[in-house]
Write a protein that binds this DNA or RNA. Structure first.
Length: 510
RNA sequence: GCCGACUUAGCGUAAUAGGUAGCGCAACUGACUUGUAAUCAGUAGGUUGGGGGUUCGAUUCCCUCAGUCGGCACCA
């Protein structure tokens, strides 16, 4: 159907517009694309007309023109831009409706909408585009994720470190980042003559902690982790929502190990990733990219060909042994080495890269890192870079869109919301419950606004509070707590001690 | 950065073929005190994103800057 519709669109465009200089079409199971260059301006406003013309040619085709945009001809930024129209076609109205409904629902679970509705993060024109501000509620989610992440990483042998946001430019010149990403560095100067760079990555800082002492082969692997902000001067057109920002909170980790340990180290990190995403209930709908060099342009990378060959081979072996079925993607490697990138989907089904494991033989050499081996000789360690959450920003995109804003109770900004049947008669008991739960370190809120109970319940549900407690005469007189879980009709009643036991058990669930 | 669209009160929106703007939710005030998803009444809130231009007059037309969105390109 997509093929047929695309042909029809082409016919209509040729009829309606003149001087078509470039054209190109392709389609897959999901969409069709028609690309062309004409003199006239075409925008989404013309879709109505185009759709009518297509329908005239074939009334049995059910389709929608989705978007129009400029794209570089043949995907090369040196070429001129041409117009692309994207559409989708079905053989009956029902399927089309289903698809349109999916688009509507996707709007509802857009992380930007959820982030706003649930009061998790915001932006300010004063602060600047691409600089997200986490609200108190959003900060709870972020901090809880960090705690969980670090707890798990400690099991895998990581030690937390903490580095400044600034560094002398020479750090990044040595690492190679300044050479490749010169245009993307934020430079910071002072009237006193300081010349710094805001760190765009944490790995060079971590190498210097490694280098602060003489290391023995017995100590390796040494694994550092740090969740901190990095700053990258992205192109303005790339920035949007939490998917791509200038200030990015990266959950970064590096392992310094011996060559013989590399493969096991990569396996450990992949297991760590699997472990975390399984706990989060997100270990599905992913695919893995074996991101290798652009073989035609070796000058884009640092390090020797032999090292690269070996690195790519190791990652391939790990992929095979762990059954990751990694798809080889040329030109997707990092500056210093190939990667295994774990790709997930956003609300609209677009790929987002989140966790990653990267091999790096180059940077330790450039920094002259070494350890003393069994024979008392200096050896260069290998670095394995890894991100599990990736960045907190991008992880939140995945989390909010996959869960439609319904967070597990351990992550929820408010875990328990208390609503009185009557503020007049139940206020004291509600306050008492609130204090007891607070003392138990449960994130509890008490809605003592002068609203109707029904409205408070609705609000509590809209804010996706996992547990809503209702307190009335029955509870007050018998020292009980009645509660409902989000989305359930069933009400349970427990005494206070039982409730605390219950809620703690719920919070500990992963 | 490139192509295109958009920007009206905290949020969601309506309107003007050029004559300074309505509504809903939220907020505030008052009444009501309710047993599981929106009580009633009232009040306040806008230099229609910023700047410039055309015009007797611009929220509407033009330019420009910023921001947002969809793509492209980029992504350590």
């Amino acid at each position: 159907m997509n093929e047929k519709c695309c042909e029809l669109l082409k016919k209509v465009i040729q009829k309606e517009y003149h001087n078509i200089r470039l054209d190109d079409m392709f389609y897959n199971a999901d969409e069709f694309y028609y690309q062309f260059k004409v003199d006239e301006q075409i925008s989404e406003k013309d879709f109505n007309k185009l759709e009518k013309e297509i329908k005239k040619l074939d009334s049995n085709i059910y389709f929608k023109l989705l978007k129009i945009s400029g794209v570089y001809y043949k995907g090369n930024a040196n070429n001129e831009m041409i117009t692309r129209i994207v559409g989708v076609a079905f053989s009956n109205q029902e399927e089309l409706n289903k698809y349109l409904q999916f688009l509507e629902e996707a709007k509802e679970r857009d992380h930007r909408k959820i982030g706003h509705d649930l009061d998790l993060f915001c932006f300010s024109d004063y602060v600047g585009a691409g600089l997200p501000l986490y609200t108190p509620r959003g900060t709870i989610v972020k901090d809880e994720l960090q705690k969980e992440m670090e707890k798990l990483c400690r099991k895998y042998g990581f030690q937390k470190v903490s580095c400044p946001s600034l560094a002398d430019i020479s750090l990044f010149e040595t690492s190679g980042h300044a050479g490749k990403f010169n245009e993307e560095l934020f430079r910071v100067e002072s009237p006193k003559g300081h010349k710094f760079v805001l760190k765009p990555v944490q790995c060079p800082h971590h190498t210097q902690i490694y280098a602060s002492k003489i290391r023995s082969y017995k100590e390796l692997p040494i694994r550092y982790m740090e969740s901190d902000k990095q700053y990258r001067a992205e192109l303005p057109g790339a920035v949007g929502g939490l998917s791509r920002v200038y200030a990015i909170t990266v959950e970064d980790g590096h392992s310094f190990c011996r060559r013989e340990q590399v493969k096991q180290e990569v396996i450990n990190m992949c297991n760590l990733i699997k472990d975390f995403y399984t706990r989060m209930g997100l270990w599905d709908q992913y695919w893995v990219s074996l991101s290798v060099r652009d073989y035609n342009h070796p000058e884009k990378y640092i390090g020797s060909k032999e090292d690269w060959d070996l690195c790519e081979q190791i990652l391939k072996e790990v992929s095979d042994e762990l059954g990751l079925k990694a798809k080889k993607c040329e030109g997707e490697a990092a500056l210093y080495g190939p990667k295994l990138d774990f790709m997930f989907k956003d609300a609209l089904g677009r790929d987002i890269q989140i966790p990653t494991v990267q091999l790096d033989f180059a940077m330790p050499k450039r920094f002259g890192l070494f350890y003393i081996d069994e024979n008392g000789e200096k050896q260069t360690p290998v670095m394995v870079h890894r991100a599990v959450l990736g960045s907190y920003e991008r992880f939140l995109v995945l989390l909010l869109e996959q869960f439609k804003g319904v967070l597990p109770i351990w992550l929820s900004p408010v875990q328990v919301n208390i609503i009185p049947v009557s503020l007049k008669y139940h206020d004291d008991y509600c306050k008492k419950i609130q204090q007891i739960l607070r003392d138990e370190d449960i994130r509890v809120e008490y809605d003592d606004s002068k609203e109707q109970m029904g409205k408070k319940i609705r609000h509590s549900n809209l804010m996706k509070n996992p547990i809503t407690i209702i307190i009335g005469d029955k509870e007050k007189e018998n020292n009980l707590i009645s509660y409902r879980r989000l989305g359930e009709e069933k009400t349970d009643t427990l005494n206070i001690e039982e409730f605390i036991k219950f809620i703690k058990k719920e919070i500990n669930k992963r």
